[in-house]
Design a protein around this nucleic acid. Structure first.
Lengths: 191, 191
DNA sequence: TTCACTTGGTAACATATGTTATCGTTTGCC
DNA sequence: GGCAAACGATAACATATGTTACCAAGTGAA
């Protein structure tokens, strides 16, 4: 849920405790599909342990859009907000422990929260951050070569490179797995 | 301002009328720099007439991130929200008529608006849309070839292709202007 | 252990894309 | 009108990247 912003917005803590029982806790193996492409997203997912990817299928080839780890939350946003078929699949990469908050309770929470002072500011902050994140990704695509993009990943989010299989990373970078392999060996030779 | 959402959120209209006098109206020629990379963004810009781009300089090469047209608003968001040096330049493409709302008044407006019923919902909607926009751009990069991306532009936002010089579009698509020219002639041959 | 599956590396070749240079046209300005 | 700058097309060549195929190591389940 929004609860991954607990640290930044302490007023959320009380809500977290109260909404905890409404969430469904699940322990799932790797490669478990939590939301299937084409179905409507009806849960907000919070990751207690493990790692998850947001992906889609393009003419039989699998493409990864984003990776999520412990204490992060996600959903297929457009589907969740607009009740439309999800363009994306949500799938675990490692065996994971996740909490699912049904949409109905999510909406209740939003209603409750909206009277909280500073709520608008909080929403603005949270969404601005996400927007800036995607915008930076976009800028990286038009500015950097794939090799530079891989180096950025290594420098800024090394946990992704460490925990995620390489072919997922390749599709996330927008290149083939063969080319990512080439990039890695080129970098190794440079040192 | 947020006023480009007037149609979607009619409750904004009264505020628009009241804040209009606080905005600075400017008629500027093409290629006018409205915000320079490295300076702090202190205005929210609304376009009455003309067209504007958000861009940055990368080792001497100019890259365009986004295009804006009549009845759209923009700022260098990160700079505007966090008072940091802007990573981007804002520059007119055509001779334009723009309104600039100083940050101080923007903040006043937000404070006033926050008591308005449905405000949180409005903010969430606006930012969700922007987030989805950038996310779709990202997805397009990892899914489509440059040729497909150009066709998407032609189909979904033909006004951009019609009004914007080609080399800006090339950098926006993440390719060289020579390659965009090749793509165009390849498409022409196909028909 | 064995077996199937996943993961990651590499080679060879095909294709896509960048770079540089040149040319003709258009546009804006004096 | 004339000049400089912007714009867009194209060619030739260099480099980056995709595709297909093959191999080796690691992993997990029966």
């Amino acid at each position: 849920m929004l609860f991954h912003f607990k640290d930044k917005f302490p007023q959320l803590t009380a809500y977290w405790d109260r909404y905890l029982p409404l969430q469904k806790r699940m322990e799932v193996p790797a490669k478990t599909v939590l939301l299937e492409e084409g179905k409507t997203s009806s849960n907000y997912i919070f990751i207690e342990k493990g790692c998850v990817r947001l992906a889609f299928n393009n003419n039989g080839t699998d493409k990864t859009v984003q990776f999520f780890f412990e204490n992060e939350g996600l959903t297929s946003l457009e589907s969740f907000l607009k009740n439309t078929p999800s363009l994306f699949t949500i799938e675990t990469i490692e065996p994971s422990v996740i909490y699912a908050l049904p949409k109905k309770h999510f909406q209740d929470l939003m209603t409750e929260l909206s009277v909280e002072p500073g709520f608008a500011d909080m929403i603005l902050n949270i969404f601005a951050e996400r927007q800036l994140h995607y915008m930076h990704e976009f800028v990286s695509f038009i500015r950097d070569t794939p090799e530079q993009r891989y180096q950025n990943l290594l420098n800024e989010r090394p946990h992704i490179v460490q925990r995620v299989p390489q072919h997922y990373i390749a599709s996330y970078l927008g290149i083939s797995r063969v080319h990512l392999s080439r990039i890695k060996s080129a970098l190794a030779r440079k040192r």
